[in-house]
Amino acid sequence: MEDMIQVDRAMSTQQGTKISAKGVQVYYGDNHAIKDVNVEIDDKTVTAFIGPSGCGKSTFLRCLNRMNDTIDVARVAGDILIDGEDIYDPKVDPVQLRAKVGMVFQKPNPFPKSIYDNVAYGPKIHGLARNKAELDAIVESSLRKAALWNEAKDRLDAPGTGLSGGQQQRLCIARAIATAPEVLLMDEPCSALDPIATAQVEELIDELRQSFSVVIVTHSMQQAARVSQKTAFFHLGNLVEYDDTDKIFTNPQDSRTESYISGRIG
């Protein structure tokens, strides 16, 4: 474990910053949900957002691919740069952004379509495949990356809603991967899953780190410790502490972080 973290740290220093947020504020109507958050998220790293319910970690996650745009009352201020480009620049089309920054949701939400169509949906709308053979290849490689290929290859035409909860969530991950994103956002991806399915998904997340920058919101501190290299602790809309995961869990600088990880608040 100690070794691994050493390696991770070395890696994270090798990789450049993927996402950089400066002075981000989010308002839901009159409610000031995110207060002046500054954070730098590294590429090819798993970054975990932890914190008690309602601390704003999911809200901040949804800012990173502008999913908050779909909520009428939400308003975002401040700068969020991906690869140095401001994603809230009026010239940026959220549709293009979301192809680059994929998302996996709390509850598995496969479309009421076949497994194949679920995965092919993204590539189709973004025009990533020039013909059926290419599309087939994308579907296969995405399902492989999501560790679902062996279970699903014989029933690609079966409805995605017929899979088990863990399989559904991996299907949703495959669906997100299929659009070849550079960042993958995961909003409590295991909260609706049983322990075995959770273990599978966590394993998967660790593998995904090879290709993507992964940001995961989680309720479970153990999960954050298991899968992430960097951890950010949110409390009441503030980013309290952001550091390497082992440092957060072993030697937190802020008393609130310490209270949270030792179970006194949350």
Partner: peptide
């Protein structure tokens, strides 16, 4: 869609494309 022969490997979308410019498809 083009008439070009299908490549055997999946087309990988160009990485690092700027978000500030909309491509034709978008």
């Amino acid at each position: 869609m083009t008439d070009a022969p299908a490549p055997s490997t999946p087309a990988v979308p160009p990485k690092g494309k700027s978000l500030l410019a909309q491509d034709d498809r978008t």
